[in-house]
Nucleic acid binder design. Structure first.
Length: 291
DNA sequence: ACCCAGGCGGGCG
DNA sequence: CGCCCGCATGGG
């Protein structure tokens, strides 16, 4: 199946530390990714404006089209978003450098687990821990593709994670987060229904998420942004804090609350997009020793 | 060896 | 409320 896209870069999208990067496998050149969704393995690769997509599992062509369109946020009007968030030279520079970077929309539970693991951690280790949890606790799927059999594993369910001991979760390198992982999995497989947050507004949903042990201000915002498409969420991590302080507060330290207030006032309903461009720009600038 | 990573919970003033 | 601390783990 082919999809014609506009203002979309799969490379910038999958390389910007969103959940799909933690549970999927990015292709060598970065222009594609293989990932699983609801028992289906999906392969997406971009050349120019064309996205070539295929799947192994029970997904019709229109189902695959819908999955890709939703997953990569392809319904968003990027011209409008760039207009709204392009408030100054720095963010315009980030937009120009990473044009086509989209906020992905992922499964709420998968997003939750990924970002509980992400705290006080680095991207490489997050990927490693998530992939080991999938290997250990994800259900195996087989798909007969003519002469070859495709094997892959689903993302582990809340129940599958909740069954494990803290010790066995730690054995995959989760560290002290193992306790949080188990607590959140127990909640999500019991009385806490992640689906009910879909219809709550941003503030209410955030408050509910933060009642779970291991989910604080930053992780809650990541879950709402990448798992629920609440584009006003502005996750404040060490990177974005540094970038915002440097660019908008003359390098002076600000409280997280101040940074939220600033982002809300400046970028409003698309603050999440502003955050993702500044985050990716800031991180890569550091790697390239630009800032 | 030292420092840091898409932070959080707990304790203190 | 703000501030400070400890927390597992592995890579630079």
């Amino acid at each position: 199946m082919r999809l014609n896209t506009e203002d979309f870069s799969i490379k910038h999208t999958v390389e910007s530390a969103q959940p799909i990067m933690f549970f999927g496998d990015i292709k060598k050149d970065g222009n594609g990714i293989v990932y699983t969704s609801e028992g289906t393995m999906i392969d997406a690769e971009q050349s120019g404006s064309t996205l070539r997509c295929s799947s192994y599992g029970n997904l019709t062509e229109s189902g695959l089209r819908e999955e890709i369109t939703r997953r990569f946020g392809l319904r968003e009007d990027m011209k409008k978003i760039y207009r709204e968030i392009g408030t100054d030279a720095l963010i315009v520079e980030a937009i120009n450098k990473y044009r086509g970077l989209r906020i992905t929309r992922n499964d709420p539970w998968e997003t939750t687990l990924c970002f509980v693991i992400s705290q006080f951690n680095n991207v490489k280790r997050i990927k490693g821990i998530v992939s080991r949890l999938i290997a250990a606790y994800g259900k195996e799927k087989r798909f007969d593709a003519g002469n070859v059999e495709i094997l892959f594993r689903d993302f582990p369910t809340p129940q599958a994670i909740a069954r494990q001991s803290v010790k066995s979760l730690m054995s995959h390198g989760a560290g002290y987060r193992a306790e949080y992982i188990k607590a959140v999995a127990e909640a999500c497989s019991g009385g806490f229904d992640l689906r009910k947050l879909e219809k709550k507004d941003y503030a209410d949903a955030k408050e509910e998420l933060m009642e779970l042990r291991g989910i604080g201000d930053k992780v809650a915002d990541c879950i709402l942004l990448f798992g629920y498409g609440k584009l006003e969420a502005f996750p404040v991590d060490t990177w974005i804090k540094r970038v915002v302080e440097a660019a908008y507060f003359s390098g002076k330290t600000q409280s997280v609350r101040k940074i939220h207030e600033f982002a809300d006032e400046r970028w409003g309903g698309y603050a999440g997009y502003a955050q993702q461009y500044l985050f990716h720009f800031g991180r890569n600038s550091k790697k390239e020793n630009v800032i």
